[in-house]
Design a protein around this nucleic acid. Sequence first.
DNA 1: CGCGGCGTTGATCTCTGTCAATACTTGTGG
DNA 2: CCACAAGTATTGACAGAGATCAACGCCGCG
Lengths: 225, 225
Amino acid sequence: MTIVMRAPLFQAMGPEITRSMIQNRACRLYERGERIFQQGDPADSFFLTVEGWVKLYRQREDGDEVVVAIFTAGETFAEVAMFMGGRFPATAEAVSPARILRIDGAALRRAVLQKPQLAFDMLAAASLHLKRLVQQIEQLKAQSAPQRIADFLLDQVPAEAGPATIALPYEKALIANRLGMQPESFSRALARLRDVGVTVDRDHVRIRDVAKLIEFSARSNEDDR
Amino acid sequence: MTIVMRAPLFQAMGPEITRSMIQNRACRLYERGERIFQQGDPADSFFLTVEGWVKLYRQREDGDEVVVAIFTAGETFAEVAMFMGGRFPATAEAVSPARILRIDGAALRRAVLQKPQLAFDMLAAASLHLKRLVQQIEQLKAQSAPQRIADFLLDQVPAEAGPATIALPYEKALIANRLGMQPESFSRALARLRDVGVTVDRDHVRIRDVAKLIEFSARSNEDDR
DNA sequence: CGCGGCGTTGATCTCTGTCAATACTTGTGG
DNA sequence: CCACAAGTATTGACAGAGATCAACGCCGCG
């Protein structure tokens, strides 16, 4: 439960409200592939990923799935939709075995009215999500497939220069979808990154020099916060 | 000022707080092309478009502009960024002569603490913006240029069937950017919509049968709210 | 050992971006 | 009132990126 308390939302809430909110078995284990909620369901709760990976995607009429976001330990999702009390505009599904905490919307709403400071934290979460979506749009509109992959890899790496090795956190097909391309294109584009010092073995990616990859990706300034 | 009061945010605020907040000449006229704020500026206010059109875009290192959203009369923008008190992650610019109300962040923050209900309205606005961004991502990832244009046109039309005529609200190059394509592609793709009953004259678009266009666009269900 | 899921590779085709030339509109000044 | 310039839109030719379809390889598992 320590990870729960670490989420900014719960820090602000204070231990007593938190505990009252996440009492009885609200935390559940989902198998890989299991749905957490479905596009169109009434949005009466939101979620905190305690462990594992979750994909949030839109289902299109033509049967295609479009991944909008992917969450992992410590991240909350669907708060804003829940707050509106409407319906979920997307579907959430575990892409690995995942432990997920469900938080009741009505309870949170009451908490916010009691402690307005909480609203700021909700907005902080919304802000973060907005920023990520904007970033994604920017990437889709202005960057080639190899550049988007480079950005994705760089997001996984703390360092700003030197060598690094990373394990791809989930299936390549999912990464491809997240990045807005076909699995085949992902494979080819990743191979093309060999020129800038990226080599692949199974699900392990070795970057010879992070700085070089940053230069290649032409990332725009991370001039926020 | 009636349009100000109509914005959900101010409805909830009540007339007295509203008036105290938007007192002295906070409303300003911007010329076409004038910046309202710039990416990286301290985000100490947010804005309500009273009249005209505003584009919100990211400036990339390579000089490209990526339009993230476009706002018009009655819509607020940058609330969430403001609330975080950080810096604007994008630039806002008037694309037509525009009358815009600037609202002080600190004042709003105080108002929220006084009247927690306001927080819900902030979250509502955030929710709307999030939903739009998600929709945009879906379109970019899963739809061809003509389909994206079809969706754009359909957003301008209230009807669900029958004929319609619409005036494009701003320059085609801007629409093209918003839809993630080059002006040339926009021109060609729009021409290709002739097959589904769309004809263009200057900035006027005639749709012979809206239902047919909906079918073509393969829009996913608008299953929200 | 054989099967199924996942990933890669190859061939081909379509769409979109790019570069360049050409209208069309609008506003300005003679 | 006309000529011209600047901004905006369209059209053409071409190249490249990525999608699609198909085949194959790899690996884990029953």
